[in-house]
Amino acid sequence: MLERNGREFLIVYTGPDGSGRKSVAEAVGHTFGMAKVISYVTRPARSGEVDDQDCHFISMEAYLQMELEGQFLESVEIDGDRYGIRRADVENSLRRYGVVYLILNREGAERMKELYGDKAIRLFVYADRRVVEERQRNQATDEAVIARRLRHYDREMAYRSSCEHAFENFDLGDTVFQITNTLETYLQRGLVDKD
């Protein structure tokens, strides 16, 4: 696990669907030993997703009850599905680990910035529209789903200039390397090169 040094940060990965933000976030999170704060969603799991690991997949009724109880810091509807981050999950994870990461759309990223200010570091991960489309086709994503996600592409890309950092994810290894170096400046772990 990442050693606590008194600093608290929410590392927020955002960007268009299909840009690889989840793969990048998980690789960087693994590199640093960071804990992930998991969203609650009403959509069905996508191919390869695991409940309580990728997202908490819950019914619309359960989601609406949690929302009514004021449990969510952020709640958004996209294409008829609801997505939310539970306040207790963020606060407990920050208290326990100091540095955590989340994977959110632009509304969620903006909300975390409003609530946490300089503690929220937004990392915008993107890829060219053609690359995004190819990646989704290579994953055998349904054409209707691809079309729906691409309808949001330009709107998501417009958020890039609002984020603290942006990374084009052409090569996963290179993107992870760039983000790791960027986060070192915030985390200040005091690593020493002994070569």
Rank of each mutant, 00 (worst) to 15 (best):
D52R: 15
G117Y: 08
Y101E: 05
Y40I: 08
V12H: 10
I11M: 04
V192N: 00
H152Q: 12
L183C: 02
A62F: 10
L64F: 12
Q65A: 09
F57D: 05
R122I: 05
S23L: 03
D118I: 07
L73F: 14
A109V: 00
Q136Y: 09
R189L: 13
Q65D: 14
L102R: 03
E61Y: 08
R21F: 01
M66H: 08
G108E: 05
R189V: 02
V12W: 02
Y40E: 08
E114Y: 09
N105P: 09
P44L: 02
F177E: 06
G33A: 06
V90K: 09
D154G: 03
G190P: 01
M60F: 11
R130V: 01
E91H: 12
G190S: 00
R111C: 05
A45K: 15
D51R: 15
E74M: 14
L191R: 10
A27P: 04
V192A: 06
D171L: 08
G33W: 05
L191G: 10
R21V: 02
D128L: 01
G190N: 00
S75D: 04
S161R: 13
H56Y: 14
H152W: 08
S39C: 10
F167N: 04
E156H: 06
P16D: 09
S161E: 15
L115A: 12
